[in-house]
Write a protein that binds this DNA or RNA. Sequence first.
DNA 1: CGGCCGTTTGATGGAACTCAATCTACGTGG
DNA 2: CCACGTAGATTGAGTTCCATCAAACGGCCG
Lengths: 247, 247
Amino acid sequence: MTFASFTDTATVANAITRLAALAPLTEDDRRALGEAANMAAAFAPQSEIVSEGAPLPDKKILLSGWAYRMRQMIDGRRQILGLLMPGDLLGNCAHRDPVSATAIIAVTQVRLCTVPSLGSEALREAYAMSGALDEIALLRQIARLGRLSAYERMIDLLLEIRERSALANLLEGERFALPLTQEMLADLLGLTTVHVNRTIQTLRQNEVLLLRRGYARLSNVEGLMRLVDYRPAPLEVAPQPEREPRA
Amino acid sequence: MTFASFTDTATVANAITRLAALAPLTEDDRRALGEAANMAAAFAPQSEIVSEGAPLPDKKILLSGWAYRMRQMIDGRRQILGLLMPGDLLGNCAHRDPVSATAIIAVTQVRLCTVPSLGSEALREAYAMSGALDEIALLRQIARLGRLSAYERMIDLLLEIRERSALANLLEGERFALPLTQEMLADLLGLTTVHVNRTIQTLRQNEVLLLRRGYARLSNVEGLMRLVDYRPAPLEVAPQPEREPRA
DNA sequence: CGGCCGTTTGATGGAACTCAATCTACGTGG
DNA sequence: CCACGTAGATTGAGTTCCATCAAACGGCCG
């Protein structure tokens, strides 16, 4: 299965939903975001959005699509450091002369726009919250790689993706998009593709995971959270209107 | 060897040296820092400076001593997420109602003080730079755990500690303090203490590492950096007056 | 139809873990 | 001042999880 043709169902609305969950946006904010979105730049799947060591661009919003931050060693070993999903913010850096510490690569087709004037209090607040969530994701990734088995790592990662999808109202019932190849999952989890494949099969046998055509569904989320000691990010998540699953 | 009695040779000057390397401090800044340091709070070795989920205190400077950020699972597995060394800043968080995502534990005796009024441009700049370096350290830790062998992880970590020591002028010749037990190293590197011990012995046999009484010395730093593809943090490090090694 | 990307399967090896015991340095109290 | 307790370091034997190597399979697109 290739994801070059992955049809991203996320819209600008999803990105804005996420920001609104981080700080109470005013109507003005939403309008400004909508206008900024009209100036969005598009990136093809697999393209390099930012290079390692390149000067960091302005603060940007990921309007739709997925990307990842990656580090590659000279001998070819790759480690994916973190995922970027709709509504995530890039270039969160307050000091002058900022340089990107990592490359950023598009997974699917990606649309990016510049954050509108940061004059708005709520937008600045959302930006700060987003930075805090970014840090939590990095910390989680460290604990995942350092102390979980392959089986647990996979569950922990899927729980995180599910949680972040929910934040942007991208949970359709209990199903969510997972446009990652097993190779990307391996680079994310510090495993080989072969072992990722075997781990997924075990998850399927245990009826924990349904994985099909770029979508995933977890069973018994509560139990899984207990299994890997998963702690949701400390956010009073406003309940979102639930979208109908479309099979 | 216990580090409860570890004599920390770092002084307030080391912490200030680090900040000065991040942004050009004025004389006023230095004076304010010196005064703030007089109001420092002390923490005993092994004590919990901040609890996970506790409300985050004000922005603080670690004046002297070492600490670490940690996450513990219910079944007892521990992962050290990162180290805090003299001159490091805590509570780098711009949004309201911040809660610590991790516990912070003192390794040695620790002294902390509140950052003086952030009115100063240079201090704000130093704070931002420090945040960027924190992120780089987290990213490095992820790549370390995900893609390096035990042997490489140990080298990579020691190179990072050496680099950070240098930033606070805590490199004495080629020697630097390493007040960590093998158990802490294990929790930091995602290994067991037994394996850390064996890895250290291999490093000693290869004449890469000298480790004695809480101090470390690396040989052939250039070669080690190449071996693990170590990339120093992008900082134009102002050369510091070198301190005489004393031992 | 053929090639390619991604997935799946099998066989084998090795890096790191587990369990268990011993050793060493140091601080403490008798 | 020595006996003891404890934290940390070290060593050995056996095991397991995950990597490696190699090949085959499946769907999609040209």
